[in-house]
């Protein structure tokens, strides 16, 4: 599994870890019930604080992606494809919000944005 941490990104490091793990779950690189690295091990390997990894794992657990079994560690929970899609949609919405903010402050019309989007996205199906 690749976990790439960008220090210059405005995205929190724990979010970056969460996304890397979610992606690995979505692409089946991490299988159901597969054991994740221990919090301390991952912290050392990524050279980040234990708290940061703990926060990422805690949130992944709350969101239902992983489960923690005491004494054993954290495992990938039963997969929920719907949940993953919803997550990704939310992520996309965040960027759309940003587009709207910029377009409003710089007076660029919705029509222009949509045209640009069509052009860049290319043919769909």
């Amino acid at each position: 599994m690749d976990i790439i941490i960008s220090n210059s990104s405005n995205q929190p490091i724990f979010e970056q870890i969460k996304q890397a793990i979610k992606k690995a779950i979505a692409t089946d690189e991490l299988k159901e019930n597969e054991l994740l690295p221990s919090i301390r091990n991952l912290a050392q390997d990524l050279r980040i604080s234990v708290m940061t990894v703990k926060r990422a794992y805690d949130e992944l657990e709350q969101e239902g992606f992983i489960k923690t079994i005491h004494g054993k560690g954290s495992l990938v929970a039963t997969k929920n494809i719907e949940l993953l899609r919803e997550e990704q949609m939310k992520e996309i919405e965040k960027y759309i919000d940003k587009i709207i903010l910029i377009s409003k402050t710089s007076n660029i019309s919705k029509k222009e944005i949509l045209a640009t989007f069509e052009y860049l996205f290319g043919e769909d199906e």
Binding site: P12, F14, R47, S49, V50, M51, T52
Partner: peptide, 22 residues
């Protein structure tokens, strides 16, 4: 910034901040 779990900040003999890195 990367490895500390807690940061405690002392200024002029006073602790002015002590929080998790997060």
């Amino acid at each position: 910034e990367h490895i500390a779990d807690y940061i405690t900040f002392i200024n002029n003999g006073n602790i002015i901040l002590s929080k998790t890195r997060e």
